[in-house]
Design a binder for these strands. Sequence first.
DNA 1: TATTGTTATACTCTATAACTATA
DNA 2: TATAGTTATAGAGTATAACAATA
Lengths: 149, 149
Amino acid sequence: MTPATSTPTRIDLSAAASDLRMATFRLARRLRQERAVDTMSDGQFAVLAALKINGPHTLTELAERENVTAPSMNRTVNCLEDSGWLSRTADASDRRKVILSATDAGRAVVDETVRRRNAWLEGALADFSPRQLAVLAEAADLMRTVADR
Amino acid sequence: MTPATSTPTRIDLSAAASDLRMATFRLARRLRQERAVDTMSDGQFAVLAALKINGPHTLTELAERENVTAPSMNRTVNCLEDSGWLSRTADASDRRKVILSATDAGRAVVDETVRRRNAWLEGALADFSPRQLAVLAEAADLMRTVADR
DNA sequence: TATTGTTATACTCTATAACTATA
DNA sequence: TATAGTTATAGAGTATAACAATA
């Protein structure tokens, strides 16, 4: 805005970056500790949650979304299918393709896992004021923007 | 504290927790991609950074800190030692113990990685307004508070 | 006997290469 | 010939069990 704020802003940028980097790693580490009891692996959960939230996908779509190879995703999908959380159906228009969908049980597992993983953080956030929660909500949005660059 | 406000607050709390948790993991994952040495794994870097920042540790201390078993940490330490980034020295007072320290080269690798991650994040934050940077700065402070619970 | 570090071995996750079926 | 999915096999990383040295 004004010249008086432009120089501090440049200094703040470097400090803000360093602070945000350290805070992000520390919170990620703490959150990882709290979910150590989970039965499903991170990769399996990410796939199941994507299917529940964004609807059915093909194998290649899931592999690209999660940045893994098709054989690796195929193994993850096999595990989820063996557990009854995911089902394969043939694509009528292109018979090379297989449509992957979360089953009712799979959707329930996603909800339950999200609830459990959120529980600790919700407890921690309960001490904060509505204004502080709003700050965190806006920051989360900005962080997602940064991460998707 | 009326029923009219308590219910919306509880809903916001759950959503804020979920958004913050996902944003934190995504940003941490993106930041971890910025490294000084491609051959070093995330686990190896975390150990080396801990030794550089918090000083020498024993094997058991490192294993507990990183939430892995002693044999697993021993393997990580062996890799870092083979690369010349970490050194073992005997503990004079208790000869069962081995003191693990980052070498000069190891400290330099940590510094370079931190520098790269900060530079990348600064570039990403450059698009934001002073108000948005202030939001991120306050959020970083709150996140640190949560992580230290 | 308990603790610290280490080795032996197995399991999980991911990757590359090769194969089958379909477009 | 190219694409979608799958199987075969190998390389990291982590785990449990067993062992050696020291307290």
